[in-house]
């Protein structure tokens, strides 16, 4: 039961994107298409689970003074590994996400979870927390990229949805659209979900 709570916590109550407003850079930069948003989400899930697990395992032997540098090294290791795997198995995703794959290192979600959850909880709970946070992040990215791709390019996963008469609102896949959709999405999330809870 506790495990389930650790998992679901990240999806709505403490959704990293809409509630905690962490990891904002990739959230806006890669959500121009659903494929990119999904790919980024999965990469972050992988890194979060691994780093949470390792940090939870080693937290007893890590001296307090140097814990942050050690966390950063652990995270950077997994990010580099994920980067190589993406390059090897999905070059299309690699060229779409570009510089934002190595930048997962400085995605504050990951360091924040390491510091505030994984360093204080047992391994299994930390894995669930990583998974939940990652899924919450991915869902948020897919939602935002869905809105932006649909209205900004008239497609969903690169398939045309509307007829030829539809003139896409290009601004939504340009940088200003990232800020705008993100702002409105947070407002919507607050209005619909937080009020009820």
């Amino acid at each position: 039961m506790k495990l389930w709570k650790d998992f679901s916590n990240g999806i709505i109550k403490e959704n990293p994107t809409f509630r905690l407003v962490l990891g904002t850079c990739p959230t806006m930069a890669v959500t121009t298409a659903v494929f990119n948003g999904l790919g980024m989400g999965i990469a972050v899930i992988a890194v979060l689970i691994c780093s949470n697990l390792i940090i939870s395992l080693i937290n007893k032997i890590v001296p307090n003074e140097v814990r942050i540098p050690i966390y950063v090294v652990v995270i950077a290791t997994f990010v580099s590994a994920v980067e190589m795997l993406i390059k090897a198995f999905s070059p299309a995703l690699d060229s779409a996400l570009g510089i934002f794959i190595p930048l997962i290192v400085v995605n504050c979600i990951i360091l924040a979870r390491a510091e505030s959850f994984a360093s204080k909880n047992p391994p299994l709970n930390s894995i669930m927390d990583g998974l939940g946070m990652g899924v919450g992040f991915t869902l948020a990215l897919v939602f935002m990229s869905g809105v932006r791709e649909l209205l900004g390019a008239g497609t969903f996963l690169n398939m045309p949805i509307f007829g030829a008469g539809f003139e896409p609102a290009l601004i939504l896949i340009l940088p200003p659209g990232g800020f705008l959709v993100y702002g409105l999405a947070i407002a919507l999330f607050n209005k619909l979900i937080v009020k009820k809870a």
Partner: peptide
């Protein structure tokens, strides 16, 4: 002691990445 621990962590990290690199290099 702190420097030593940091060094060990870095060496382990480098080892892990070296292995990943060896596995994926040709594929890339």
């Amino acid at each position: 002691k702190l420097t030593g621990i940091l060094l060990i962590v870095c060496i382990v990290a480098a080892g892990v990445l070296g292995v990943t690199n060896a596995v994926t290099y040709e594929k890339i």
